[in-house]
């Protein structure tokens, strides 16, 4: 596959219909994580799958649309975090393309990378909009402890975010990888826009 097709903005219909499915999967992940009272969000499984299947651009679009929809139907602040979702989509797309998503250990490593990217992108947003907090009880407790001890807000906020992101993003990537492995070949192929028609 050529690099160009990976980054193509000329979307195939199959990749486009992957986006609503991805957003729906994000929503359902979040729903079950809540219903089972898991200490994780698990709300980006769909975005990750979209990136793995159709590349960074579709992944990024899935992330953005996910947050826009969530922002317009539940919590408007999530609009702001569309940026984080886009970053996750792009990162996973690149990792998958570079072959960093094709075994369990590699997927675990990718999970850590994604957590870092997510935290790096979210931290300035958290600082700008929330004074540095994430809204997660444990993370915010650590944040309070750190700023009470005169650590810079940037550090405190980053630690707050990464504490939440590390377990969440690793779990998200591992779940997505498990699902990806179960998908039939003829499905994974249709999202790739690049194959030529051979003449018989």
């Amino acid at each position: 596959m050529t690099k160009k097709s990976r980054w193509s903005f000329n979307f195939s219909t199959a990749s486009l219909v992957l986006i609503p499915a991805a957003v729906g999967i994000n929503y359902i992940g979040k729903f079950f994580a809540g219903a089972l009272k898991l200490p994780l969000w698990l709300d980006s499984i769909g975005t990750v799958l979209a990136s793995m299947l159709a590349g960074p651009v579709i992944g990024a679009l899935s992330g953005a649309i996910n947050n826009i929809i969530y922002g317009l139907t539940a919590d408007p602040i999530s609009l702001v975090y569309a940026i984080t979702s886009v970053a996750i989509g792009i990162t996973v797309g690149i990792l998958a393309y570079k072959g960093w998503m094709d075994s369990w250990p590699k997927a675990l490593f990718s999970g850590i990378i994604v957590a870092l990217v997510s935290a790096v992108v979210s931290t300035p947003l958290n600082i700008k909009f929330w004074g540095g907090q994430t809204g997660n009880f444990w993370g915010d407790s650590v944040f309070a402890f750190l700023i009470a001890n005169k650590y810079p807000v940037l550090i405190a906020s980053f630690v707050d975010e990464i504490l939440v992101d590390i377990p969440d993003k690793i779990a998200t990537i591992l779940v997505s990888y498990a699902i990806f492995r179960g998908l039939p070949n003829k499905l994974t192929l249709v999202y790739k826009n690049e194959s030529e028609i051979e003449k018989l």
Partner: peptide
Amino acid sequence: LSARIKAFFPLIGPVVMNSLISTRERA
């Protein structure tokens, strides 16, 4: 917690698979 984590997969798996597989025909 371990039981609830284990439950996540059988719950989410079928819906996710279905929705991904139907994207082909929908496209």
